[in-house]
């Protein structure tokens, strides 16, 4: 029995503790990211944004959380009840579970998988199920249209995301996210990170990440001017909260992926003593916030795409470009014998 405890019990205890730590940190971070998103959007439109609950409105997200929790959950009478309630749970769970492999600092990772990159790709591509199930189970035209759009959109942009990931992993020589960050650790600091040598891929990844998470200007699945609220039309209360949470956690995940793949994860921007003294997790969070700031600015400035333009961009522009980038990367790596 004692052996069972040391082999399984204790590690299990540690893993549960780590997961809870990541979960709590992530949810708090998401609450403030939501606040930041609204504040940035307001600043662009010269409004004040949330400023009533708490000092400078800092507790706004928690007020919203309480509001969502205590509202009545309405289930449409002709909805497919089981799937209707399962869909938001799936969205939130999948979005949260992808964080298991994200390294916040050297060695600060819940599961140091050898295939961490594929794991993240797999879980972000599964996010479509929550939306499709929710849209179908609502038994409403708007929801269903939103679900169909979402499915087509996410499948399209995954392809270019996948190809860019391939070119990054060829340069780093590993599918392990920590190893990818370590491969960017050169004396050039900021300029040794992959955003510079993979610049076109960085731009395509950034735009595809916005499309993959259904953020404006690619928020066609919930385009409120056409589809009421898209797949979320029939949702209220806690189920809606879960959808909302899943969406924002997925956005944070994409910001973290941009940070890890292109912005050097936990590495300091310059190879200079005092900067190394700052804990890596601080650099990581700062970079994620920076990427999110860019996402928020794109949302504030760019008008919504038309659906055929979205598909054209995905298949006719990004797919050939990212595929070409894979070929170029592989060619350079082989020609100059740089492959790790």
């Amino acid at each position: 029995m004692a052996e069972l405890w040391t082999t399984y019990g204790f590690p299990l205890f540690i893993i549960v503790g780590q997961s809870l730590g990541v979960l709590v940190g992530l949810l708090l971070f998401t609450a403030y990211i939501l606040y930041a998103d609204r504040k940035i959007f307001a600043a662009v439109q010269m409004r004040r944004g949330p400023n009533v609950v708490g000092p400078w409105g800092l507790l706004q997200s928690f007020a919203d959380l309480t509001k969502f929790l205590f509202k009545e959950a309405i289930i449409p009478s002709s909805a497919n009840k089981g799937i209707f309630l399962l869909a938001p749970v799936i969205t939130a769970t999948l979005a949260l579970s992808a964080w298991a492999v994200i390294p916040f600092d050297d060695g600060w990772v819940v599961a140091d998988l050898n295939v961490g990159l594929l794991y993240v790709l797999a879980f972000s591509s599964l996010g479509v199920y929550g939306i499709m199930m929710g849209g179908w189970a609502s038994n409403s035209k708007y929801s269903f249209m939103g679900a169909l759009r979402c499915a087509a959109q996410m499948v399209s942009y995954e392809v270019s995301l996948g190809f860019i990931v391939v070119s990054v992993l060829m340069t780093a020589g590993s599918l392990n996210l920590s190893d990818i960050v370590r491969a960017q650790d050169t004396s050039a600091g900021l300029f040794g990170w992959y955003w510079l040598i993979h610049f076109p891929a960085f731009v395509i990844f950034f735009i595809s990440a916005i499309a993959e998470t259904n953020r404006p200007p690619f928020d066609l699945p919930e385009a409120e001017s056409e589809l009421v609220a898209g797949y979320a039309t029939e949702y209220s209360s806690t189920p809606f909260l879960l959808f909302f949470l899943g969406e924002f956690v997925a956005i944070n995940l994409m910001a973290a992926m941009v940070t890890i793949l292109f912005l050097g994860g936990w590495l300091p921007p310059f190879d200079w003593g005092p900067l190394h003294a700052v804990p890596g997790v601080i650099w990581f969070v700062l970079k994620v916030c920076f990427v999110f700031f860019l996402f928020a600015m794109v949302r504030a400035y760019v008008p919504r795409y038309r659906y055929d333009q979205l598909m054209r961009l995905g298949w006719k522009v990004f797919l050939p470009l990212s595929l070409g980038w894979v070929v170029v990367t592989a060619g350079v790596l082989v020609a100059f014998d740089l492959a790790p």
């Binding site: 998988l113 050898n114 295939v115 594929l118 794991y119 790709l121 797999a122 591509s125 599964l126 479509v128 199920y129 499709m132 179908w136 269903f144 679900a147 169909l148 499915a151 087509a152 996410m154 499948v155 995954e158 996948g162 599918l175």
Partner: peptide
Amino acid sequence: EFLAMILIIVYVGAVAVLFLFVVM
């Protein structure tokens, strides 16, 4: 684990989505 992830990405993330798309 590589095969497991590929199975999820290809079959669950792409093929089954299109399946569901048509069936719905």
